[in-house]
Design a protein around this nucleic acid. Structure first.
Lengths: 211, 211
DNA sequence: ACCAAACTCATACTTTTGGGTGATTTTTTT
DNA sequence: AAAAAAATCACCCAAAAGTATGAGTTTGGT
């Protein structure tokens, strides 16, 4: 099944350098992807929620405060889709942080057109084929069908964060709420899942046939 | 006496070559399966009825009259459980016959430990899809192949416990060691996995292509 | 016999989690 | 508009988890 992912796939490029961004845009367009470009985290998040792209190319070294890793974490917690890091260098700390966000690929500049194309193809097919390995979003309706009392949307978001191994602090930062609020949500989540700890919660939901 | 987390799945190996049979037996035992070996059809059928294994590994080219396909047909007709073909070559006729018996997998020699483990896991989970799936033991060698410094056996045991959502107390009770010892092990596990908490550890290992 | 690695455990301390209670603000539904 | 549900947050307390350090005991290999 040599399926092609080119037709109609939306790619979000997050790159603060306008020259590289434009290069990428042209390259991707030439390959049949529809492309949106963002230059900063806020813009990226906006496009992610509004346009729901199928894949993201992330410059890991964005100017300003937030980095590609921040965006990756946001993606994992809120809107899990495959993303590929683009970077000009790799220091160990950044690399480890990057790895922890489970990117589909990690391309070191200078990369070629074929590099990107192949990486995108692989990323897309891996992500949308194997439901088992993807630490994906939980379908709220399916998940709730197993529970006595249903989880709210926010609770699902928290649960997704848990499932990525985030701490309470991490959850709070990701969702822009206080740690106390996270605890509050967690408490009801635990009740509803009938578990007593975050680890039990993870085990519980992962053993469910959600895929 | 080591393992406290056996999956308890019984595997029947049907293989006329004693060397390969023994290799398989060891490999499977190491992965926590209990293993029975048969060398011919009659013996196989005997074990199938008497021991009721959960899965069968079938050499497709048995010496003598009957083949693995014959046994597969018997299984389908009399005692439907998942089975996997093992074969050194694939001629078209045999292959087609084999396909018609709806095997769970078809492994070409030379196959590796991971090959078999993965195929078995998939076969079992597909076949017994419902609830109490095996808590998924980790293959120490596979897991270690991803790590800079390898986990010891004891550490793997702890990790398996973590993966089931056990608390430190729970781990200590299960392994008959003190909670302090558990913490001690946990500390080195976290270092080796390069994580900072049990939840991160779980996420980390589950994201690996081990099961 | 000796060494190294693995396993064991303790004590003390810090940080993170989880539980309980209660309250305010949105949002949604009736 | 009133009621209900969801989301937000605070404060306090207790339990669990994690860190640091040091040390005794097995076990396997040279």
């Amino acid at each position: 099944m040599a399926m092609s992912f080119e037709a109609g796939f939306k790619v979000l490029v997050v790159e603060d350098d306008p020259l590289i961004a434009e290069d990428l845009r042209i390259l991707l367009c030439d390959n049949g992807y529809s492309v949106v470009v963002a230059h900063a985290k806020g813009e990226a998040v906006m496009h992610l929620t509004a346009n729901k792209p199928d894949l993201v190319l992330l410059d890991i070294n964005l100017g300003g405060g937030s980095t590609g890793v921040d965006i990756a974490r946001w993606i994992n917690a809120n809107h899990p889709i495959p993303f590929i890091y683009l970077t000009s260098y790799a220091d160990q700390t950044t690399l480890q942080q990057a790895k922890d966000t489970h990117p589909s690929a990690y391309l070191l500049k200078p990369f070629t057109g074929p590099d990107i194309k192949v990486s995108i193809e692989i990323a897309l097919s891996n992500f949308y084929d194997s439901s088992a390995t993807s630490p994906g979003l939980f379908d709220i309706s399916i998940l709730n069908s197993y529970l006595d009392s249903p989880l709210s949307e926010r609770e699902i978001e928290i649960l997704n964060g848990l499932n990525q191994g985030l701490s309470n602090k991490g959850l709070a930062d990701n969702l822009f709420i206080s740690e106390n609020t996270v605890k509050s949500h967690l408490k009801s989540i635990f009740e509803k899942l009938n578990v007593k700890s975050r680890t039990e919660a993870i085990v519980r939901i992962r053993q469910l046939p959600l895929d």
